Every structure is written in C-alpha cells, then in structure tokens.
Amino acid sequence: MQTASLSRKVHKWLFLFVGVQALLWTLSGVYMVVMDLDFIHGDHLVKNLREPLPTEQGTLAPTQSLLERYSGVKSIQLKALQGNPYYVVNTGEGAHLIDARSGRQVSPIDGDRARALAEHYYTGSLPAVSAELITDNPPTELQSRALPLWRVNFDDRYGTSFYVDPDTGALVTRRHNYWRAFDFFWMLHIMDYEERADIHNPLLLVISIVSLTGVLAGLILLFYSFARREKAADTAATAGGAQ
C-alpha cells in the first residue's frame, strides 16, 4: 500500500505541475497531424518556380564579359524570369541579376519589380497590396534566412506573404496564416520560445522526464487499482459461498 500511496502522490503532484504543457502537447499535436504538410508549405499558392527558358532568346551577352566585369565569380546561371532570360552571377560578395540580352545589371530590384515578381509566382488573381524591404529585425516566420528580402503581401483569405530575393528575383519562401498557426503550435510543442527550432532544449528535456515519471506513477497506480478490485471481488465471492 505504501507503493500505491506514493504513486498516487507522485502522479497527482507531477501532473499538477506539467498538466498544462501536456494539454498543449496534445492540442498542438492534433493540429500538426490533421493539417496537410503540402498545404502548410504553401504549395497551393505558388507557380512558375521552375520557369523554362524562352525558345527565342535572341543574342545573349557573352559570359566572358561577366567574368571580366565581376571578380571572384563562383558560378553563372542562366534562368528565365517572366519570360525573359537573365544571368545570376554568384561572387564572393553576393549574387547579381543580369539581363542576359543587354548585359545590364538589374539588381537589387525595387519594390515595383518585387511586387510584379510576387504576382508572377502567385497562383491567385489578386494583386499584391504592399511590398516592404526587410534589412534587419526579421519576423520570426523568416527563421534563419539571409537578409535583405522583399516581403510582398496579398490580401487573400490565407493572409499570404511572399519573400523575394532582391539580388536574384527568386522566391525564397512563402508564408500564410495556417503556416503561422503551425509554427506557433510547433513552438508550444517543442517548448523553444525563441528560435522555434531546437528540439533538444533543456526545458523540453526536463518537462518530458517529469511527464514520463508521472505517467509511470499512473501505471503503477492503475495496477494497484485493478489488484484491489480483484481482491474485493474474491472476498465477496468467498463471503457468498460461506452463506
């Protein structure tokens, strides 16, 4: 009986301590399991991510001229943006977007071009409502992505935001309200309230161990509860037979 009494006390007090977190684990887990990950990633919101090169490219600026113009070139990529060919020249100092026909550098792109590109990547028909160049203090939804980035917002039912690289014109990532809810629940689930990425943080480890101890105490208590019922049933059967 001492074991049962101790298990009861441990189970009660530990779950008084971690009960709210256990509830949050359950609620956040349900949301993350129910929601389709492709939807959360915003796959339904984007198009033209791998745009084919135009069949009629015309005369392109020679890459040799780019090697002579930029120092420390690491790579040169030819790609299409809105139906036109562009070079992306990667150097030790960063990336540069070059009009492949004229050889003119067009990066960093301005807000109007960022909005036009975001609308080009967007599957919806609504125009972008705003564009903001983020150079510091990024929102948590950007996580560890490098700045600067253009944030282009759409007034749709998802609360969609596209993040466009000003140096390459590429769509870096997309965010919407269901993703933001997922990220919030993920934060609650792993108990990393700053970076929302560390699943090995000390707080989660401690609470997990405490919760496991409470569950084990509950299992012990459950065993003694069934044993007590069986003993009571046997006593009642014996008393009935004696009569």
Rank of each mutant, 00 (worst) to 15 (best):
A4D: 12
L6V: 15
K9G: 00
V10M: 06
F15Y: 12
V18Y: 00
A22S: 14
L24P: 00
W25Q: 01
T26K: 00
L27Q: 04
V34D: 06
D38G: 14
D38W: 07
D38F: 06
I40P: 01
I40V: 14
D43G: 07
H44V: 11
L45C: 07
L45G: 04
L45A: 08
V46M: 12
K47S: 13
N48D: 14
R50M: 10
P52C: 09
Q57F: 07
G58K: 08
L60A: 05
Q64Y: 03
L67F: 15
E68V: 11
S71K: 13
S71T: 07
G72H: 09
G72C: 04
G72S: 15
G72F: 05
V73Y: 03
I76Y: 01
L78N: 06
L81K: 04
L81H: 11
Y86Q: 01
V88I: 15
V89T: 06
E93S: 13
H96Y: 11
H96C: 05
R101L: 08
V106N: 04
S107D: 10
P108I: 03
D112M: 04
R113W: 02
R115G: 04
A116Y: 02
L117Q: 02
L117F: 09
L117K: 03
A118S: 13
Y121V: 10
T123R: 15
G124D: 10
S125R: 15
A128R: 02
A128C: 12
V129I: 15
E132C: 04
I134M: 10
T140W: 02
P148R: 03
L149V: 10
L149Y: 05
D156T: 10
Y158D: 13
V164K: 01
D165C: 08
D167Q: 15
T168A: 10
V172Y: 09
T173N: 04
A181N: 04
D183I: 09
F184H: 01
F184M: 08
F185R: 02
W186C: 06
W186M: 04
M187I: 10
L188Q: 03
I190E: 03
M191P: 00
M191E: 07
E194P: 00
R196E: 11
R196P: 09
A197N: 13
A197V: 09
I199A: 00
L205R: 15
I207R: 00
I209Y: 12
V210R: 00
L212I: 13
T213F: 08
G214D: 03
L219Q: 06
L221D: 03
S225P: 00
S225H: 08
F226R: 08
A227H: 07
R229I: 08
A233E: 15
A233L: 14
A237Y: 06
G240W: 11
A242M: 11
